[in-house]
Simulated scan of single mutants.
Amino acid sequence: MRIRPVLISVLIWSTPVNAQTNPSMAALEAAEMLEQASIALTEADSARDRVKALTETLQAYEAGLTAMRDGLRRAALREAQLTAELQVREQEVAQLLGVLQTIETTAPPVLMLHPSGPLGAARTGMMLSEVTPGLNTQAQDLAADLQEVQTLRQLQQNAANTLTKGLTGVQDARTKLSEAIADRTDLPRRFVEDPVRTAILISSTETLDGFASGLSEISDGEIADTNADIADQKGHIALPTKGVILHRSGETDAAGVTRAGLVLGTRPRALVTSPTAATIRYRGPLLDLGNLVILEPQSGLLFVFSGLQEVYGNTGEVIPEGTPVGLMPGETPGIGAIMSTSGDGTGTDRSETLYIEVREDNSPVDPELWFRTDKDG
């Protein structure tokens, strides 16, 4: 009875578990996403609409890095789980190998002998025939676990090069996007901002309410009317960036501050886009809100996004849905941070905060009346 070759062949030919449940597949797919983003970045310069192409490229990089971070985290957890299980099963494994080795090295004539005679030998043979499949199953399970550990470790070792390219690519995409937006001249404008009037308005107001009510005063001339209407999108508009809700409208934060808007936790340097077509009514610093952008999707309705590090576009421009309006502050985590912790899956890597306020006829309303918040990113 020769079983050891079966174990050897299992160790050689065993494959990882199903792709849908294997954490390594998530990281491998993320690497493919980053590769596709790299290709898109090289093609974006020749695109007819560079801003749109670069926006999609940057979002692809962000999605790829997020998926890589999650895949590596899951891979690390899975490797730790398997390693712990194998350590617990170490004695069991040693006994299994001992049994297999004994069966393999015992001379066939001895295997035929039994104190109870031929009947006992027959019974023993029957027992062995029942035990052998179980031993093979254990050997196959062990081989699969060992192979998966090797795959996970190899994946994490190879991830450094992929992450280096991805982090370089996302930075290049941000730089090119900023340049493309600065060079853009084809957007319609409802008005031209008067910087002197804007400065006077900022200095004379102490609240967002006061500033918002005076927005009509910052233009150099009349503000063209608009017939834009997004009423049919109410309650279904996507958030301007992916994140987790930290505070909803009317909730008090740790500092004891209660605001009318909601606070969204985002990853550092996340791209913020206009969720609908809109007019940029204001962009820049204001009061204690930091850099913000105020969008007007339709007459009497304002979306306020504050907490940005960089703001894009020009006041008075009418921008399409999905147009970048800014970048969140912070530093993109380096390779070491991504590979060592890879986040814990609870949103703790969303270290930056975007404040979102919606105003109807210059009165704040719950942003969740307009935005879809059932799915956090």
Rank of each mutant, 00 (worst) to 15 (best):
G120Q: 11
V131A: 12
I202D: 02
L177M: 11
P195K: 12
A122N: 02
P108G: 04
L155M: 15
Q171L: 12
Q147T: 13
I181N: 06
T198H: 04
P118R: 11
I200A: 12
S204G: 12
P115D: 06
V192D: 09
R197Q: 13
G125M: 01
T205H: 03
R184E: 15
D141M: 10
S204L: 11
D186K: 05
S204M: 05
A121L: 01
T106R: 12
F211C: 09
S203E: 12
A122M: 13
D141H: 08
V170N: 04
T102G: 06
P109H: 08
R123Y: 03
V131K: 04
G120R: 05
Q101M: 08
R189M: 12
A143L: 10
D141K: 07
A199P: 08
T105E: 14
F191E: 01
P195M: 12
L155A: 08
F211E: 03
H114P: 05
T106F: 05
L146N: 01
N161S: 07
V99P: 00
V196G: 04
K165S: 15
K176H: 07
A159R: 03
L135T: 08
G214K: 10
S116A: 14
T164N: 08
Q154K: 07
P115V: 08
S116Y: 12
R123T: 02
L187E: 11
I103A: 06
A143W: 03
N158E: 14
A212I: 13
T207A: 12
G169K: 05
P109N: 09
T164C: 00
G166N: 05
Q171W: 01
T175S: 09
A173S: 15
A160N: 03
S116R: 12
T151F: 02
L152M: 07
T164F: 03
Q154C: 00
L142R: 07
G117V: 07
S203V: 00
L142M: 05
P118V: 10
A160R: 14
T102F: 11
G210I: 11
M126C: 00
P109T: 08
R123N: 01
V110E: 08
R197G: 02
D186G: 06
E206D: 11
I200L: 15
N158F: 01
A143R: 02
I181V: 15
E179P: 00
L96E: 05
M126I: 00
G120W: 08
E193S: 10
L177Q: 07
A159W: 02
L208E: 15
R184W: 06
N161E: 14
L128R: 07
L215N: 12
G98T: 09
D194F: 10
M112E: 15
T124D: 09
L97N: 08
N136Q: 06
P133E: 00
T207R: 09
A182I: 06
F191K: 04
P108K: 12
L142V: 01
T162C: 01
Q138N: 03
A144S: 09
V192P: 04
V131L: 15
P118K: 10
V192L: 11
T198S: 08
S178E: 14
R153F: 04
I200N: 06
L177H: 03
D194L: 07
R189G: 04
Q157E: 14
G134C: 02
S204F: 01
Q95M: 09
E148L: 10
L167G: 04
P188I: 11
L215M: 13
L201W: 02
F191N: 00
D194W: 05
L152P: 01
R184T: 07
T175R: 14
Q157N: 07
Q95E: 10
F211W: 09
E148V: 01
